[in-house]
Design a protein around this nucleic acid. Structure first.
Lengths: 225, 225
DNA sequence: TGGTGTGAATGCCTTCACAGCG
DNA sequence: CGCTGTGAAGGCATTCACACCA
């Protein structure tokens, strides 16, 4: 292992409170670094990295500075090293067992999506209430009745849950996920759901993304995300 | 029509430059208002609306003030009226013809997703390069070869494009969408794509959303979106 | 009384600019 | 010389607090 001496502790975690926007950009940095690595790029400067993503060089450096010192003056950042560090920060250096609830069109698409496992998110089980689906295997994942959620979450040590059920069922499903001891929820149902503070929640509303786009087209502002 | 007299012009557009975050919240307001309306709620105050979404009352009022005056002192906001106004601002009072490019798992799920049409986004055509798919109808939408994109975008007056192809093909598809005269792109491929400034761009990276979640779980911050 | 709209104050994030290092 | 890390400055966005209205 590279035993560099004076360099801040290899950032095990976030120091104080990191702006949400910074964490968001971290994901962009990681994605870009992974592309660069695939192309064989070894090092990159903050300005080059920023340019590719539409951020300033100062922003890149400040963002990374929240978590430690990763750069080499005169050189830039070593892509592999930095990617590794960001993975550790985001948690994608570990495996995250995931449960999917709701095996409709969207749910099935998510089960088949390769991008998740590449970042360490692995589906352990899927759940639904439709008797047609229960007992089947989809993309290699077994579908269980929703009632078996607590049992299987615990036995498979599942930490994250994805909600892909109709809006009307989303809050009830969220409640059951929370009861089952899940730590974070990604909600695709187009409703606001509430969870206790010790559970993390991220929502994605596909129609809302299109709304942001139509607004942007109508008022012709610059690009968004 | 309700002929109220002194009240700012019914906000045809955004005045100067509206923060992106405000536009984002507008979508949340609209979604919540639509729920409220379904429950028969007539009016709501900024504090009630904010509470349901985790925003402060001042924030709600400020956000709306960017676009005009919608509230009634002592009463709050009339849900129907406000929803209507926000739809006009976001552009979802009109119909937006949409083209889907990439009819894999995710693409098919999007074609079948009801939530889009409810907000005025209607798929006019889908495109792929897989001979297996071309000529078929999926969820009532015809799948064409990608080469026919310019022709069909123009004949159907398609304004928005959704990219649901592998990362490696995304930029090329984006270029073709732009050439075809599309005005906005929603990109689901996990890559940064670039488009000319007159074209709007919104990106959604599903794995990135899970990364935000795992970070949040690891560092146990409060909920995100 | 209950609630909006809005200037003023606050606080946070981004950008600047430069010392320091390889 | 090139490029990082970072205090200081600047610019936005959010919150406060209050005049005003029904």
């Amino acid at each position: 292992m590279p035993g560099r001496s004076k360099r801040k502790p290899p950032e095990p975690a976030a120091p104080k409170s990191v702006p949400q926007a910074v964490v968001n950009r971290l994901s962009y940095y990681l994605r870009e670094l992974q592309h660069l690595l695939r192309q064989g790029v070894q090092t990159i400067s903050s300005s080059q990295l920023g340019q590719r993503l539409g951020f300033t060089d100062a922003q890149v450096r400040k963002d990374l500075a929240y978590f430690g010192q990763f750069g080499y003056p005169g050189i830039g950042y070593r892509c592999h090293e930095l990617a590794e560090a960001i993975r550790r920060i985001l948690g994608t250096d570990q495996q995250w067992p995931v449960a999917l609830v709701g095996v409709g069109h969207l749910g099935q698409a998510l089960l088949g999506y390769k991008g998740f496992s590449q970042q360490g998110f692995v589906f352990e089980a899927a759940f639904d209430v439709d008797p047609e689906l229960i007992g089947r295997q989809l993309a290699g994942i077994r579908v269980y009745h929703l009632d078996r959620l607590p049992q299987i979450v615990q036995s498979h040590k599942i930490r994250l849950g994805i909600i892909a059920v109709p809006a009307s069922a989303a809050q009830a499903v969220a409640d059951r996920l929370v009861e089952s001891g899940i730590q974070g929820i990604l909600n695709f149902a187009p409703v606001t759901i509430t969870v206790p503070p010790q559970v993390s929640l991220v929502g994605v509303d596909l129609a809302m993304e299109l709304e942001q786009l139509s607004f942007s087209v109508l008022h012709r502002q610059r690009e968004s995300r």
